[in-house]
Design a binder for these strands. Structure first.
Lengths: 342, 342
DNA sequence: CTGAAAGCGCTTACAG
DNA sequence: CTGAAAGCGCTTACAG
């Protein structure tokens, strides 16, 4: 387990030139050699524990073999499957993937410099440009490094990919409709495009059923805003029998607020959230959700980078396969015939 | 927003040598120049949107300015504060940080190659070597790149850092004791060192109170195993009035199993979990926890890498400041005088 | 089948 | 105050 050394040192010890060492390290067909020579070189590589220097390689190849993925909040459980999809696809392309948090992308941060400085990152998968400031975005645009925008529909040069949020809203609403609910409301963000799309899906489903679609009950991300949204409904005097919620965490917040207000879920109120996560199955009552094809979204993003890099055409837009799937748990139930007043 | 170019091109356009360009890019004192020259160079840099090539820099400097952090499950909420601590400390050292998941560190994966290949990563912060296989570990050991182990007490060359798990167990148990509970049990992993330490803290506190410390009720990570542990207690016929739990997710699983079994928390059973996370406050009843100094742990890990890299001495071991702090929420309550039998 | 050489884009003594 | 040159560790035509 010595110092590992360089190709030059391997070459010296094996009594060959660096060209040969490079060829055995990379399995290059181009440079041919005798089996004996190869074996000798391999033995020295093994002995020294040689590992190629990535910086030198990247400089010479003009490609680092690394892609970066930047999301808003790393700990958000909905990314789990997406990371998985990204990682698998990247491996099959021979790429390493590194992750970062958008909260790190402040103008002038070293993390940003790492992304922007040529030579270390071949492509960037970025969630929602809304999260980073305009100055940073301008830097990103100015680089030749491909940037794929995920979950935003107005990406750099049309390079965006998103799940079918409208379909998710529709699936969720239809589930509730099928359970006999009519007085259904939607809880979600007002500005964030994906949430707007989910609301559109909700509205479509309501209209198709001959019902009135209501405006979204505005909320942010997270359980506090879910709880606040339910309190707002209560205060307004409205008494919907079912709610479609933007995200799992807000759904959990609604559970909490319902608990506090003595509203029983699903007895008095059915709740379904968009996006799935383990935690939805862990809370009680377990939350019914709509699972989205996040792994596929991630894989598609990687394939798009590959396509851009090799100059082949690629299709951006909606990743609508597989379709959203309903995960029925405990928070939704058939409409009560004689609902208990809350 | 042109092609960005190289120092050579900047030099040509500004009519200076690359040495000067490099000096203005890096703010090097060493190479002095007239204000006029500097201004000319800066103008060209601005005009071309020049950004240094990280690969060339890393090769030349023999340092990449990037550290890697590898954890078991990125989505685990307890990492949030740690990432924050790591990121802030790294920024102050001028480093970028990249994140990875231990599930990616399979032998032969490109992610691993990215970590191992010299030149791209200056230091590695790795959570729990138990998570990766021996072959990968051997690779890691063989590299000169410093590796700091977090949350394991037998790190490479004694380079480990951990929170004071025993203190956490003690704080949790003393809280329960203060509430009048005597029949307290501990739910946690049997093999994982941090959990063993937490159990030791529990046992110490029990002994100090003149009570008998029980063996840990074995469980893994996650809500399913928490739920299973509670069912095991129920089946055994034992009726503890309070439980100290290894982790938040298992605590949530215990809530779920209690809900199913008709056991009221905290009425019939008090539950406190070690480590804090937002989700603990989001569920109902909200889970009482012990917050650990995870941000400090992360920052210390970065400082250790810095110290190793510059050859200065550094202290490894327990990060015991600030001390664990009790976050009282709804899942713990004073011992009932006449407990309802479950 | 194998070697010598150029060059990727930087930084850093060194010379003037 | 500024420039010419070496060299970080690779890969890849090219020559033999």
């Amino acid at each position: 387990m010595s110092r590992m050394g360089t190709q030059k040192e391997i070459a010296r010890r094996a009594g060959v030139s660096v060209s040969v060492v490079s060829a055995v390290v990379n399995g290059t067909e181009h440079t041919r050699m005798s089996d004996d020579t190869r074996a000798r070189v391999e033995a020295v590589i093994e002995e020294l524990g040689y590992v190629p220097n990535n910086a030198a390689r990247a400089l010479r190849r003009q490609r680092s073999g690394t892609i970066a993925v930047v999301v808003e909040k790393l700990e958000n459980p909905i990314y789990r499957d997406m990371f998985h999809g990204i990682y698998d696809a990247a491996e099959s392309h021979g790429w390493a993937v590194v992750l970062g948090d958008a909260r790190w992308m402040r103008s002038g941060s070293h993390f940003l410099a790492h992304l922007l400085g040529q030579g270390s990152i071949d492509g960037i998968i970025l969630r929602s440009e809304g999260l980073i400031d305009d100055e940073v975005l301008a830097h990103l645009r100015a680089r030749p490094t491909p940037v794929i925008l995920i979950e935003g529909r107005h990406g750099l040069d049309g390079r965006w990919l998103a799940i079918d949020d409208a379909a998710a809203g529709r699936v969720a609403t239809q589930h509730l409709l099928g359970l006999g609910h009519r007085d259904i409301e939607y809880v979600g963000g007002e500005r964030w495009v994906p949430s707007l799309e989910r609301h559109r899906g909700y509205a479509d489903a309501m209209l198709d059923a001959g019902l009135e679609a209501r405006d979204a009950i505005p909320t942010g991300y997270g359980s506090q805003s879910g709880a606040a949204a339910l309190r707002e409904v209560i205060d307004s005097g409205r008494r919907p029998t079912a709610l479609v919620v933007d995200n799992v965490l807000s759904g959990i917040g609604i559970h909490a607020a319902a608990h506090e207000a003595g509203i029983s879920i699903p007895g008095d109120l059915s709740v379904i959230a968009i996006h799935d996560a383990d935690i939805a199955g862990d809370v009680r009552p377990a939350l019914t959700t709509v699972r989205m094809p996040m792994a596929e979204l991630g894989a598609r993003a990687v394939e798009s980078i590959a396509a851009i890099l090799e100059g082949s055409p690629t299709r951006f837009g909606l990743v609508d396969e597989p379709a959203p799937v309903l995960i029925t748990r405990e928070s939704t139930a058939p409409l009560q015939v004689s609902p208990r007043p809350w």
